[in-house]
Simulated scan of single mutants.
Amino acid sequence: MIKLMLTDDHAMVREGLKNLLELEENFDVVAEASDGLECLNILKDGNTADVLLLDINMPNMNGLEVLEQLKKLKVDIKVIILTVHNEVEYLLKAVEVGIDGYILKDSDLSVLKTAINSVYNGEAYIQPDLIPSLNAKLVTKNADQELIDSLTKRELEVLKKMAVGLFNKDIAEQLNISERTVKNHISNIFKKIKVVDRTQAAVFAIRNNLINVF
């Protein structure tokens, strides 16, 4: 019997999932939570489940934040993200944090059952039709990382400040260097990350989470 925990801020979603899953003789829903913080508190209090089905967008603490805390606390539970988001950025972040499974909420029950059984047996499971876009994103990310690594510490500082919209004069004042030096750094940055203007440089910085845009 695989013990499951459901965490979703929509009661109807939890109830529907519970009813579907408990039709399977080897699944038992042993705990539920309506948001990320409640989920974390339940698991911290020693309530055990084998697999956690976790929504990403929830109040108080989102799914990825819950996952990060579970990893830090070394809670022994497999985690499957259940989400409406098919954007590869969400999937990539989940993979980086250390997700065990990732499927979309509009998937067939057979996909969910396969995911649960897979992660319970120690295998990672990502919904198959999401894998090509993930692989493409990983290739781009790896290529970008090589470009980032080519930047000096000072160039990286200049790139971040340029990406948030600071002018050369402002950058020079904040870094206590001359405007001419800033211009030289920007020229080198453009060459190294293969862009031609400040807008493209900003997009590069945002894409690689070098700045916080929120």
Rank of each mutant, 00 (worst) to 15 (best):
A172I: 02
E173V: 04
I56P: 00
L43T: 05
K113I: 01
I2N: 00
N212K: 15
A94N: 05
I171H: 07
L151T: 04
V88T: 12
A31P: 10
I186E: 11
I189E: 12
A31F: 09
L210T: 04
N121Y: 14
L67A: 05
Y90K: 07
R154N: 06
L134G: 02
L156V: 00
V213H: 13
I80H: 05
I103H: 08
G63D: 08
P128M: 08
I186K: 12
L138R: 14
S34K: 15
F214P: 13
N188W: 12
A124K: 15
D106V: 05
P132L: 04
K105R: 11
N188G: 12
G101V: 06
L91P: 01
E68M: 11
R207D: 10
V88W: 14
K44I: 04
L112E: 03
N208V: 03
I99L: 06
I2P: 00
N26E: 14
N57P: 10
V213P: 11
N121M: 09
V13L: 05
I186H: 09
V30M: 02
Q69G: 02
G122T: 09
D129A: 05
L104N: 04
K161G: 05
A31E: 13
K191W: 15
V95W: 03
T140K: 14
T114M: 02
V213S: 11
A11R: 14
D106Q: 09
L67D: 07
I80M: 06
R207I: 01
L92S: 09
T83Q: 04
I148L: 12
V97D: 10
K74G: 08
V84R: 08
L20E: 03
K141M: 14
D170Y: 06
G63E: 13
K78W: 13
Y102C: 00
M58W: 11
A205W: 15
I2Q: 00
K72R: 12
R198E: 15
G101L: 06
G165T: 06
V66H: 09
M162Y: 13
T152N: 06
T140C: 07
L156W: 11
S150Q: 07
V66F: 09
L156M: 10
L104D: 06
I42D: 11
E146D: 13
Q145I: 06
A94Y: 08
L104R: 03
T199D: 13
L20D: 02
D35R: 05
E89R: 08
K161F: 15
D55F: 04
A31I: 02
R198K: 14
L166T: 10
E68Y: 09
I80C: 06
L104M: 03
V75K: 15
A11W: 14
R198G: 07
I177F: 08
E89A: 11
V30G: 02
D55G: 01
V51I: 01
V79P: 04
R180M: 12
A31D: 15
Y102W: 07
V213A: 08
D50W: 06
K160I: 04
I189L: 08
K105W: 10
A49Y: 09
V88Q: 10
